[in-house]
Protein backbone atom coordinates (compact mmCIF):
# COMPACT_ATOMS: atom_id res chain seq x y z
CA UNK A 1 0.00 0.00 0.00
CA UNK A 2 3.05 2.22 0.09
CA UNK A 3 2.42 3.26 -3.52
CA UNK A 4 -0.87 4.95 -2.70
CA UNK A 5 -0.49 8.65 -2.06
CA UNK A 6 -2.00 9.89 1.16
CA UNK A 7 -5.37 11.34 0.45
CA UNK A 8 -8.82 11.63 1.89
CA UNK A 9 -10.94 8.54 1.32
CA UNK A 10 -14.58 7.76 2.00
CA UNK A 11 -15.94 4.83 3.96
CA UNK A 12 -17.33 2.53 1.27
CA UNK A 13 -20.42 1.38 3.11
CA UNK A 14 -21.37 4.87 4.26
CA UNK A 15 -20.89 6.23 0.75
CA UNK A 16 -23.18 3.68 -0.90
CA UNK A 17 -25.81 3.91 1.84
CA UNK A 18 -25.92 7.69 1.55
CA UNK A 19 -26.05 7.59 -2.26
CA UNK A 20 -28.82 5.01 -2.56
CA UNK A 21 -30.92 6.63 0.18
CA UNK A 22 -31.20 9.60 -2.17
CA UNK A 23 -31.91 7.55 -5.30
CA UNK A 24 -34.70 5.24 -4.15
CA UNK A 25 -36.15 4.72 -7.64
CA UNK A 26 -32.87 3.94 -9.40
CA UNK A 27 -32.15 0.58 -10.96
CA UNK A 28 -28.81 -0.61 -9.57
CA UNK A 29 -26.40 -3.09 -11.17
CA UNK A 30 -23.41 -4.13 -9.07
CA UNK A 31 -20.06 -5.60 -9.94
CA UNK A 32 -19.10 -8.79 -8.15
CA UNK A 33 -17.49 -8.84 -4.72
CA UNK A 34 -17.25 -5.89 -2.38
CA UNK A 35 -19.41 -3.57 -4.48
CA UNK A 36 -22.25 -6.08 -4.33
CA UNK A 37 -21.80 -6.41 -0.57
CA UNK A 38 -21.87 -2.63 -0.15
CA UNK A 39 -25.12 -2.30 -2.08
CA UNK A 40 -26.73 -5.20 -0.23
CA UNK A 41 -25.58 -3.83 3.13
CA UNK A 42 -27.35 -0.58 2.31
CA UNK A 43 -30.61 -2.53 2.22
CA UNK A 44 -31.81 -5.14 -0.24
CA UNK A 45 -34.08 -3.75 -2.96
CA UNK A 46 -36.10 -5.32 -5.74
CA UNK A 47 -34.42 -2.92 -8.17
CA UNK A 48 -30.92 -4.26 -7.42
CA UNK A 49 -29.19 -6.63 -9.81
CA UNK A 50 -26.16 -8.21 -8.10
CA UNK A 51 -23.39 -9.97 -9.99
CA UNK A 52 -21.54 -12.88 -8.43
CA UNK A 53 -19.43 -13.53 -11.53
CA UNK A 54 -19.22 -12.31 -15.14
CA UNK A 55 -16.37 -10.02 -14.10
CA UNK A 56 -16.17 -7.00 -16.38
CA UNK A 57 -19.85 -7.19 -17.28
CA UNK A 58 -21.54 -4.78 -14.86
CA UNK A 59 -21.19 -1.64 -16.99
CA UNK A 60 -22.42 -3.39 -20.14
CA UNK A 61 -25.43 -4.80 -18.29
CA UNK A 62 -26.07 -1.26 -17.11
CA UNK A 63 -25.92 -0.04 -20.71
CA UNK A 64 -28.43 -2.59 -22.01
CA UNK A 65 -30.73 -1.81 -19.09
CA UNK A 66 -30.41 1.96 -19.51
CA UNK A 67 -31.24 1.73 -23.22
CA UNK A 68 -34.26 -0.47 -22.48
CA UNK A 69 -35.54 1.79 -19.67
CA UNK A 70 -34.77 5.36 -20.74
CA UNK A 71 -37.21 6.84 -18.21
CA UNK A 72 -35.51 5.19 -15.23
CA UNK A 73 -32.21 6.10 -13.65
CA UNK A 74 -29.67 3.29 -13.89
CA UNK A 75 -26.64 3.18 -11.61
CA UNK A 76 -23.75 0.76 -11.90
CA UNK A 77 -21.81 0.38 -8.66
CA UNK A 78 -18.60 -1.55 -9.06
CA UNK A 79 -14.99 -1.67 -7.96
CA UNK A 80 -11.80 -0.65 -9.71
CA UNK A 81 -10.82 -4.24 -10.54
CA UNK A 82 -14.14 -5.11 -12.18
CA UNK A 83 -14.17 -1.79 -14.03
CA UNK A 84 -10.68 -2.42 -15.38
CA UNK A 85 -11.64 -5.85 -16.73
CA UNK A 86 -14.46 -4.31 -18.76
CA UNK A 87 -12.73 -1.01 -19.45
CA UNK A 88 -13.57 -0.98 -23.17
CA UNK A 89 -17.25 -0.80 -22.24
CA UNK A 90 -16.66 2.84 -21.36
CA UNK A 91 -16.10 3.45 -25.07
CA UNK A 92 -19.23 1.49 -25.91
CA UNK A 93 -21.22 3.53 -23.39
CA UNK A 94 -19.73 6.80 -24.61
CA UNK A 95 -20.80 5.95 -28.17
CA UNK A 96 -24.41 5.71 -26.96
CA UNK A 97 -24.38 8.42 -24.25
CA UNK A 98 -27.47 7.17 -22.42
CA UNK A 99 -28.67 10.12 -20.35
CA UNK A 100 -29.92 7.87 -17.55
CA UNK A 101 -26.71 5.94 -16.84
CA UNK A 102 -24.29 6.69 -14.02
CA UNK A 103 -21.22 4.57 -13.32
CA UNK A 104 -19.85 4.66 -9.81
CA UNK A 105 -16.46 3.04 -9.27
CA UNK A 106 -15.53 2.35 -5.67
CA UNK A 107 -11.79 2.66 -5.98
CA UNK A 108 -9.55 1.34 -3.24
CA UNK A 109 -6.75 0.65 -5.69
CA UNK A 110 -6.84 -3.05 -4.88
CA UNK A 111 -8.41 -6.37 -5.78
CA UNK A 112 -10.27 -6.78 -2.51
CA UNK A 113 -11.83 -10.19 -3.02
CA UNK A 114 -8.58 -12.02 -3.69
CA UNK A 115 -6.32 -10.74 -0.95
CA UNK A 116 -5.86 -7.02 -1.56
CA UNK A 117 -3.35 -7.18 -4.39
CA UNK A 118 -2.71 -3.76 -5.86
CA UNK A 119 -4.66 -2.92 -9.01
CA UNK A 120 -3.74 -0.68 -11.92
CA UNK A 121 -5.80 2.05 -10.28
CA UNK A 122 -3.09 2.46 -7.65
CA UNK A 123 -0.22 1.70 -10.04
CA UNK A 124 -0.65 4.60 -12.40
CA UNK A 125 -4.03 4.32 -14.15
CA UNK A 126 -6.19 7.41 -13.79
CA UNK A 127 -9.74 6.13 -14.22
CA UNK A 128 -11.27 9.60 -14.68
CA UNK A 129 -8.80 10.36 -17.46
CA UNK A 130 -9.61 6.98 -19.02
CA UNK A 131 -13.37 7.68 -18.90
CA UNK A 132 -12.87 11.13 -20.38
CA UNK A 133 -10.58 9.71 -23.03
CA UNK A 134 -13.27 7.24 -24.04
CA UNK A 135 -15.69 10.15 -24.43
CA UNK A 136 -17.57 10.39 -21.14
CA UNK A 137 -17.16 14.11 -20.57
CA UNK A 138 -18.93 14.14 -17.20
CA UNK A 139 -16.28 12.18 -15.31
CA UNK A 140 -15.08 13.16 -11.86
CA UNK A 141 -13.33 11.82 -8.78
CA UNK A 142 -14.67 12.34 -5.27
CA UNK A 143 -13.45 11.27 -1.86
CA UNK A 144 -16.19 11.88 0.71
CA UNK A 145 -19.57 10.53 1.67
CA UNK A 146 -21.08 14.01 1.38
CA UNK A 147 -19.95 14.35 -2.25
CA UNK A 148 -22.39 11.56 -2.98
CA UNK A 149 -25.23 14.06 -2.52
CA UNK A 150 -24.37 15.72 -5.82
CA UNK A 151 -24.00 12.35 -7.53
CA UNK A 152 -27.47 11.35 -6.32
CA UNK A 153 -28.88 14.58 -7.67
CA UNK A 154 -27.37 13.87 -11.08
CA UNK A 155 -28.65 10.27 -10.99
CA UNK A 156 -32.19 11.56 -10.41
CA UNK A 157 -31.87 14.24 -13.10
CA UNK A 158 -30.93 11.82 -15.95
CA UNK A 159 -29.28 14.58 -17.95
CA UNK A 160 -26.28 12.69 -19.26
CA UNK A 161 -23.95 9.75 -18.86
CA UNK A 162 -21.79 10.21 -15.79
CA UNK A 163 -18.70 8.48 -14.45
CA UNK A 164 -17.75 8.85 -10.79
CA UNK A 165 -14.59 7.50 -9.22
CA UNK A 166 -14.97 7.34 -5.47
CA UNK A 167 -11.75 7.03 -3.53
CA UNK A 168 -12.56 4.64 -0.69
CA UNK A 169 -10.52 3.20 2.13
CA UNK A 170 -8.84 -0.12 1.40
CA UNK A 171 -10.51 -1.96 4.24
CA UNK A 172 -12.78 -4.96 4.33
CA UNK A 173 -16.02 -4.38 6.19
CA UNK A 174 -17.96 -7.45 7.34
CA UNK A 175 -19.32 -9.42 4.41
CA UNK A 176 -22.97 -8.84 3.60
CA UNK A 177 -23.92 -11.45 1.06
CA UNK A 178 -26.73 -10.72 -1.41
CA UNK A 179 -28.75 -13.57 -2.93
CA UNK A 180 -26.70 -15.75 -5.30
CA UNK A 181 -29.77 -17.12 -7.06
CA UNK A 182 -29.41 -15.51 -10.50
CA UNK A 183 -32.90 -16.30 -11.84
CA UNK A 184 -34.45 -14.97 -8.62
CA UNK A 185 -32.73 -11.59 -8.75
CA UNK A 186 -33.31 -11.31 -12.51
CA UNK A 187 -37.02 -12.02 -12.21
CA UNK A 188 -37.32 -9.79 -9.16
CA UNK A 189 -35.97 -6.81 -11.13
CA UNK A 190 -38.24 -7.58 -14.07
CA UNK A 191 -41.25 -7.97 -11.84
CA UNK A 192 -40.52 -4.64 -10.13
CA UNK A 193 -40.55 -3.08 -13.60
CA UNK A 194 -43.92 -4.64 -14.33
CA UNK A 195 -42.49 -7.10 -16.86
CA UNK A 196 -44.16 -10.47 -17.21
CA UNK A 197 -42.47 -13.86 -17.58
CA UNK A 198 -42.24 -15.07 -21.17
Amino acid sequence: MSHIPERQRADRRAFVANLLSQAPDALVVTGLGSAAYDVYAAGDRDLNYYLWGAMGGSTSIGLGLALAQPDKSVVVITGDGEMLMGIGSLGTIAAKQPKNLTIVVQDNGHFGETGMQQSHASLGTDLVAVAKGFGIANAQAIDSVEAGDGVAQSIRARQGTAFVQVFIEANEPPRALPPRDGPFIKNRVRSALGLKPF
Binding site: G56, G57, I61, G64, S89, K186, V189
Partner: peptide, 17 residues
Protein backbone atom coordinates in the same frame (compact mmCIF):
# COMPACT_ATOMS: atom_id res chain seq x y z
CA UNK B 1 -15.10 -2.99 -28.24
CA UNK B 2 -15.19 -6.75 -27.55
CA UNK B 3 -17.87 -9.37 -27.95
CA UNK B 4 -18.35 -10.25 -24.28
CA UNK B 5 -19.74 -6.77 -23.73
CA UNK B 6 -22.55 -7.83 -26.05
CA UNK B 7 -23.43 -10.81 -23.88
CA UNK B 8 -23.81 -8.46 -20.91
CA UNK B 9 -25.66 -5.79 -22.92
CA UNK B 10 -28.12 -8.47 -24.03
CA UNK B 11 -28.76 -9.49 -20.41
CA UNK B 12 -29.24 -5.86 -19.38
CA UNK B 13 -31.71 -5.37 -22.21
CA UNK B 14 -33.72 -8.37 -21.07
CA UNK B 15 -33.67 -7.14 -17.46
CA UNK B 16 -35.25 -3.97 -18.80
CA UNK B 17 -37.78 -5.75 -20.98
Amino acid sequence: TTEEEGVAVSCGAWLGG
